[in-house]
Design a protein around this nucleic acid. Structure first.
Lengths: 191, 191
DNA sequence: CGAGCGCTTGATTGAGTTCAAAAATCGTGG
DNA sequence: CCACGATTTTTGAACTCAATCAAGCGCTCG
């Protein structure tokens, strides 16, 4: 686990609101597909608000294997919350899956001092939602088969399914691309 | 840590304020080992602050298998954040692993309306930490072997290891009790 | 003090991985 | 806009780790 900011997923309405309160420290950027915004080991994580395009965060384990932690389409913020909350170097890479327009929030973007209470309060609810998503993910990883996980992913992230390579979805689900391919064939046969 | 109020790490003035806003809904209880506080399917979750003892939350999947989601020793609050944030019936059972003294917070305990903004802000950091823990857990579940997970659990929760049955630890790690037994044997042989 | 629960051990099974290679798709330059 | 090389996806076979099934041991607590 590299950074705490990557963990945060908030929706576009709230992100827009938050943006207004932070604009002084915001830096806009247009980046091509494949751009790496942050790498494992960097001392601090930043927040990346996606105006257009798609980012993802992921770790690379000691065997060199990638594990996608989250995707962030338009209107989302992606960051490494663990790095931020625990004040440790980030464990997460963040890169662009598509050509993207982003706004970079400085490393204190989630720091209470910078954010007006009423907005923090509303973003507090976002934190709860983020916890809810992670809770569900943990339960899925512990108890669900590859097929169940994929079905759940289809339901939960229909807007992402067709925009990212299969191998990244497989990585998000915690299985190999080969296993995902087999799973899809099995699902298709059922129908 | 004597009370829920201490968990929020707030000064006495704020504490008094918060206490006033919450006391109507706090209910103290002493419960024996095995008491089930909340069951899957109940429309609302509550918050349980552990003064003494140990609680856990878990799901039971369609094959009847238990999956421990978290443990809560002294000073922790346990609840179903997903149920609360998404306003859906709870998926989690919560019960007592040991005889425990608890304070029960009504189902709106995390609701911003009830809590003064400056206090909510301080608890915001706690939410971030909780997200950080879940982030780590997801990454462990995706990338680590049974042995690595167990080693990580030993490091992270030394205060819990000797207080809960092996089968619950196995369940928390996402493996069977048999596999945990084998894993421990392997670790022991190494030394 | 014995019945049941929890832990361990071993044998078998199975879902998913690894490895290899072919088929499909993508993207870039001419 | 096409063509060709690179990347991604699929398919298949062999293998691996943990799950399942089954049996025995040892504690505890009723």
């Amino acid at each position: 686990m590299d950074s705490i900011l990557d963990l945060l997923e908030i929706n576009s309405e709230d992100a827009t609101q938050l943006y207004a309160s932070l604009k002084s420290s915001i830096q806009k950027k247009t980046i091509p597909k494949g751009t790496i915004l942050q790498q494992q080991g960097e001392p601090h994580t930043k927040g990346y608000f996606v105006k257009k395009g798609l980012l993802r965060s992921y770790t690379i384990d000691d065997k060199g294997k990638e594990h996608v932690f989250m995707f962030a389409p338009e209107g989302w913020i992606i960051s490494d919350i663990e790095s931020q909350a625990m004040d440790v170097p980030t464990e997460l890479y963040i890169d662009a899956v598509e050509n993207s327009e982003i706004e970079i929030l400085d490393r204190n973007w989630l720091n209470g001092r910078k954010i007006p209470p009423q907005i923090f309060q509303s973003s507090g609810h976002k934190l709860l939602k983020r916890i809810a998503v992670l809770q569900k993910r943990v339960i899925m990883l512990m108890s669900a088969s590859a097929e169940e996980r994929y079905q759940h992913f289809l339901k939960t992230y229909p807007q992402i399914v067709n925009r990212v390579p299969q191998k990244m979805i497989a990585s998000y689900l915690g299985i190999t691309p080969e296993a995902l391919s087999t799973t899809k064939r099995k699902i298709f046969k059922k129908k």
